[in-house]
Design a protein around this nucleic acid. Sequence first.
DNA 1: AGCACGATTAACT
DNA 2: GTTAATCGTGCTC
Length: 208
Amino acid sequence: MAAAAIKTAPRLARDFFARPALVVARELLGARLVRIEDGQRLGGLITETEAYSGEEDLGCHCKAGRTPRTRVMYGPPGHAYVYFTYGMHWCLNFVVEVEDYPAAVLLRAIQADEGISVIASRRVGVPSAHWTDGPAKLSRALHLDKAFNGADLCAPDAMLFLEAGAALPDSLVSMSPRVGLNNVPEPWKSNPWRFRVLQNATEALRAG
DNA sequence: AGCACGATTAACT
DNA sequence: GTTAATCGTGCTC
C-alpha cells in the first residue's frame, strides 16, 4: 500500500483512555498506532489487545502494589507503560482509567502499514506476516523501549500516539483468555480479557 | 546479597 | 510439542 493512500485521523485524546480497561481494550481494535522516528511515521492498525485492571487482578503487574516499575500505571491515563521482560523484550501498554487506580491495556499486535522499509530492516529474515504479531515483536519493529515509559500519548508534540479508526462490529472481534498467565490463579487466568480482530477482518482492514 | 520468575520469542525435535 | 536466551524486578533472608 502506498504511503500516500493513508489518511491521518483525529488523535485519541485523554478522555478516550479515562475509561474501564475492558472498554478501551475493545475500542482500540481498528485504531492506529503511530510512532514518529526521525520525522517519519511508523505504525499500523491495532489488531490485538489485552486488559489489565487493579491490584486485585492477579495477572496484572500491579498485584504487587506501587513499585518503581508499576509507578506509571498509577499515574494519569493516556501515558505509555513500557516494561522489560524475559531479559530481552519490551512490551507497550497504555495507561487507562483514573489516576491512583492502576490499569493498562497491553498492545499485542498491529497490522503495520507505515514505515515498512524501516520495520523490515529491523526484522531481517522474518516473513512480513510476523513482523508485528506479538507484543515484543511490535516494540522491536517500532523501536519502542524504556525511553517511552511514561510518555504522554496525548501531548501535542508526542512521538507516540493513537489515531481513531473505524468502529469494528462485535462480529469481527474475538474474546479469549489473556496469554502467558500460566501461573496466575483463577478466575484471572481465564477471564476473556484478550481482544482480537478476526483473521478475515484483518484482511479487510488492510484493504481499507 | 541471593533467589525465582516473567503480560516472550525463535529455534529446535 | 519442548526449551534456551537473558536480566530487571520484587521477594526473602
